[in-house]
């Protein structure tokens, strides 16, 4: 309950935000699309953290999942295909006061935007990046994506995708200055909530890969994992995600993994026979670029004019 503290005292907040305050128009995603659940989870975290809507910015590229900002009533930037990361980093660079979320898909992030993805991980700016990984291009109607399964039939590979899928998490883990990688599934809202909450609380660039159902174009990709929980591996540790029993009890397949162990994180995320979910890696000691890029944001006009005059002196004749 809002404002109610553990000692039963009550803080009366000047502004209190309910879920409604983060909701915008009715999402136009298909019925059964995993994106709906991700959206409500993010909205709940905003509500729980009482994030100021005007200080929150959702940035996306192009694709089904990139419609995400339109369904939040915060500030949003629905930009170009593959280019969410440079924009998000630019927003954060001189406005570290803003809470930045990035919504991107497997095509947007891992294909057309792959170069920016690598560098966004390396910049390690304080933001949450959510990869909506449904193994397919859906908005453009069923083309193979870099994460499509080998043999997966699509309109560009009707006889089946010829190559094994790119693994976004191992890729992210391999990038220098990576600081947070987690995986979750959209059909377990409890686990997803704890994952995104931890990502938001992490200081640095939090990369969350969500195995996301597309009921229209890649239903087969996660169908089995939904009905057979043994195909999901719960990754747990004292330093990992603390997910309540209701979100974990169906999983018998469990693996203890210390999220400070980068080498082991690669091994965990590299498994192809199960979907590992949980915190793969976290390191809050890595340099954060927005701490570098935002130096000087409070300079006064006087500082600026003095600096300019000083420079003009250098060129004076």
């Amino acid at each position: 309950m809002f404002g109610l503290k553990q000692d039963w005292s009550l803080d009366v907040l000047p502004r209190y935000f309910t879920l409604d305050d983060y909701e915008s128009s009715v999402p136009r995603w298909c019925a059964g699309c995993g994106d709906h659940g991700i959206l409500t989870t993010v909205q709940r975290i905003c509500r729980d953290k009482q994030l100021l809507p005007e200080k929150t910015v959702c940035v996306s590229g192009i694709g089904c999942s990139s419609r995400f900002p339109h369904y939040m009533s915060t500030y949003g930037f629905h930009g170009l295909h593959g280019r969410a990361f440079p924009v998000a980093c630019g927003i954060k660079s001189r406005r570290p006061d803003l809470d930045v979320w990035v919504a991107t898909g497997d095509g947007d992030c891992c294909s057309i935007g792959a170069g920016h993805w690598v560098h966004a991980v390396r910049y390690n700016m304080d933001m949450v990046a959510i990869l909506f990984d449904n193994n397919v291009y859906a908005l453009t109607k069923k083309q193979s994506s870099p994460t499509s399964q080998i043999g997966q039939s699509t309109n560009t590979h009707p006889k089946g995708a010829p190559l094994p899928p790119l693994n976004p998490s191992t890729t992210t883990l391999s990038i220098t200055n990576c600081s947070f990688v987690a995986q979750t599934v959209d059909w377990n809202p409890v686990h997803m909530h704890e994952t995104l909450k931890a990502a938001h609380e992490h200081k640095g660039f939090s990369f969350v890969r969500i195995f996301q159902r597309c009921p229209v174009f890649s239903e087969e990709c996660f169908a089995e994992a939904q009905t057979d929980p043994d195909l999901v591996q719960l990754v747990e540790h004292d330093n990992g995600l603390q997910v309540s029993e209701s979100g974990t009890r169906i999983y018998k397949n469990r693996r203890t993994h210390d999220p400070s162990d980068l080498v082991q994180a690669m091994a965990v995320s590299n498994q192809t026979d199960v979907l590992p979910i949980g915190l793969l890696y976290q390191n809050e000691t890595m340099p954060i670029y927005n701490e570098y890029s935002s130096v000087g944001i409070n300079s006064t006009p006087e500082d600026k004019i003095n600096a300019l005059n000083h420079q003009l002196d250098r060129f004076a004749i």
């Binding site: 930009g79 440079p86 660079s93 890029s293 600096a307």
Partner: peptide
Amino acid sequence: VFDQAGGFVHQAEDEIAAIGFALGASYAG
């Protein structure tokens, strides 16, 4: 010299990111 005026030069990963980053900052005011 830009730091003397509180400014900052971002060397982006490519030309596209260079303008994307600038647009992000511009969007944010």
